[in-house]
Write a protein that binds this DNA or RNA. Structure first.
Lengths: 168, 168
DNA sequence: AAGCGTAATGTTATACAGTATCATTTGCAG
DNA sequence: CTGCAAATGATACTGTATAACATTACGCTT
């Protein structure tokens, strides 16, 4: 599999991109967006965001909690759930319902629902930004007079890399 | 809103269809399918299937459990989860991930993933059998070399009836 | 700089969802 | 009727998420 041209904006399924830079960029964007919205990216919130960016795999609330606890943060469930709620509100993270887990949003700022591809083998999840898909969903549904307010679209299977592995 | 032509096969959002008949039909089909597959539709399993058919709204495992308990069935969680597992395997029920709840399958027998429209106001959920949607999902995704094994597509919002209500 | 209101965090407890494990019973093929 | 496999019973536990209330920190006004 080829390495994407821009290492800071690579696919989650690209195992070799410059992840340090990738996280750094994400944090910069997050700070900018929060300032812009008059929202406070406090230490816990920032740290949670970093953690869910660090692994390109969705993380559960209690995994995050454990890490936070190691780092001296308060370690009761509400702490992490509040931080996550904030990040979801600001459009900085997504929730992966089918995994009870959370992941950083790869296109923060623009209002959107995430459509996700989740690899059952390596656990990575990638956001699928497809306007045409959104369009065809909307079309199907409005035909029936249904008003869509939120969408959960999560496809699970094998990412290109793992698919290759398994065929050996 | 008009009453659908076939009362036994109405939309979940049709509040006035012949629901007794609707359940009856579902149970007949279920029995036939199980016999066909050499699977045993035991009393708990049958009752759970009836319960999730009765309300056109997805029911949580513990709601089901409570009802079973009232009716003298064993009332420990594994009982209901086993029954649900069986029904999912047989393609008689679906799981609605975003609600942690379960609903009867309206097209049992044919292998398919359910795409769901869920009304946040009345709680009904309806299966959206859209081949074209499935097609466009598959297309988007195979472009990226991803192999889809299972799909979760759940759209939440307002059903036609509730939409009307709210506009008053 | 002091005081004040709101937002954020701390703390405890509990609700809700799902599974592991092992014992017991039931249904059915031989 | 016997012996195996499938189904159920029973207990305990793991994991996910929120309610409720106390306390602290922040930023604005005066």
């Amino acid at each position: 599999m080829a390495i994407s041209a821009d290492p800071a904006n690579a696919s989650a399924f690209e195992k070799n991109h410059d992840h340090g830079r990738c996280i750094h960029n994400a944090m910069e964007r997050a700070l900018r967006l929060c300032k812009q919205n008059g929202a406070r990216l406090t230490p816990v919130r920032q740290r949670v965001l970093e953690l869910i960016w660090q692994s390109h795999r969705p993380l559960g609330a209690y995994q995050l909690l454990e890490q936070l606890s190691k780092e001296g943060f308060n370690s009761a469930p509400p702490t992490v759930y509040r931080a996550l709620e904030f990040l979801l509100e600001q459009g900085l993270a997504h929730r992966i319902t089918s995994l009870n887990a959370f992941i950083g949003c790869s296109h923060p700022g623009c209002r959107h629902q995430g459509y996700f591809l989740i690899c059952r083998s390596c656990g990575s999840a990638e956001e699928l930004p497809s306007e045409s898909l959104a369009e065809s969903l909307r079309q199907q549904v409005s035909q029936r007079g249904f008003l869509v307010e939120s969408e959960t679209v999560e496809l699970s299977g094998l990412c290109p890399d793992c698919r290759e592995q398994e065929s050996h």
